[in-house]
């Protein structure tokens, strides 16, 4: 189970609205390489992890991704909040406004709703961990694209933090894969 902590994992204090950037960042909320997909992927896969280390790492990274989902949602909210509909129209984000107003909704930047088809969960831990390694690289690449779209330090800072976390997660999943392979080797599964 989980308890809520009344704080984000890293500070989000955006002073200047930027609705176009909000829509770009939205893909990390409900898009294919986003934090919701990451969290559900790891929290679902943890049930079929074979060792104590790999159960723990999937559980704990899946939990951290929820904290990242909250950071991304806070960024989208702060970048969109209180911007007038006229301004949104000028910036070409009026179609998003027509569907959701200025709310945070789990979709990608084109408004395509979140789907569990973005993730897989199989009984085979080697297959799962290889997917996880790729997922972390795709999330890192997405944060690098997003970093090229803004020069606001209030936005760059948390995006850099999130990119760095994907690199750390990739590292931990690599260790998890090695642990699974060593354990399976000892049990002579193949």
């Amino acid at each position: 189970m989980w308890y809520y902590e009344k704080k984000t994992q890293y500070p989000i204090n955006i002073k200047k609205p930027d609705p176009r950037m909000a829509v770009a960042i939205l893909t990390q909320y409900g898009g294919p390489n986003g934090e919701l997909a990451a969290s559900l992927r790891y929290l679902s896969q943890r049930f079929s992890m074979p060792t104590k280390e790999t159960k723990a790492i999937l559980n704990d990274i899946g939990t951290e991704e929820l904290a990242h989902l909250e950071m991304i949602g806070s960024m989208v909210h702060q970048l969109m909040d209180k911007v007038s509909p006229q301004e949104l129209e000028k910036l070409h984000v009026d179609t998003m406004y027509a569907i959701h107003g200025r709310a945070v909704y789990p979709s990608d930047s084109n408004g395509v709703p979140f789907t569990a088809a973005y993730l897989e969960s199989m009984e085979d831990p080697i297959a799962n961990l290889n997917e996880d390694l790729a997922a972390e690289q795709k999330a890192r690449a997405t944060y690098e694209y997003l970093l090229k779209l803004t020069d606001d330090p209030d936005v760059i800072d948390p995006l850099r933090f999130l990119r760095e976390r994907e690199v750390v997660h990739y590292q931990r999943f690599g260790e998890a894969l090695r642990i699974v392979q060593e354990t399976m080797g000892k049990k002579k599964f193949y």
Partner: peptide
């Protein structure tokens, strides 16, 4: 004060992940 707590809690979480694979 809150940001100091956030910094320590982040360090703790990062160490938690490290300890998961290096117990």
């Amino acid at each position: 004060l809150l940001e100091q707590i956030m910094a320590y809690d982040f360090a703790l979480y990062d160490l938690q992940l490290f300890l998961d694979t290096h117990p």
